[in-house]
């Protein structure tokens, strides 16, 4: 069976760009909290039954960086997250999966 969308989409289909700007030297966890958690949840497991569960993502670091910078199906682009901040964020997101895997044991 398929999923029924219980709540309306929060974003219009046209991709939007976020003007979020991480503080210089901000670490991955901080950027995640500020830019990502509103939709993906504190633990990365998605929210509202709609948004992508990051904790089980098998995306490679480079693919993840591309989605963050260019946006996804429903996700706005975060072009201002780059360089060290982007590396830190991706490392943090990848660590979310580890935490969940440990919890499930």
């Amino acid at each position: 069976m398929k999923k029924l969308l219980l709540v309306l989409m929060l974003m219009p289909t046209v991709l939007m760009a976020s003007d979020y700007q991480p503080a210089a030297g901000a670490n991955g966890a901080q950027i995640y909290r500020e830019a990502c958690a509103a939709c993906h949840g504190d633990d990365g497991m998605g929210k509202f039954g709609l948004f992508f569960d990051l904790s089980t993502s098998v995306m490679l670091a480079d693919e993840m960086k591309k989605v963050i910078q260019q946006g996804g199906m429903m996700m706005p682009s975060f072009a201002n997250i780059n360089g060290k901040e982007l590396d830190g964020l991706v490392a943090y997101i990848q660590s979310l999966g580890d935490v969940v895997a440990v919890k499930e044991k």
Partner: peptide
């Protein structure tokens, strides 16, 4: 926990009901 006869089981977060105007879908 949400069960439906025509769709997969799903969940609804109570926090979603406490959305601000800015957090509402565009139609709302």
């Amino acid at each position: 926990q949400v069960e439906m006869d025509i769709a997969e089981k799903d969940t609804l977060a109570p926090s979603y009901f406490f959305r601000s105007f800015d957090e509402c879908p565009q139609l709302e």
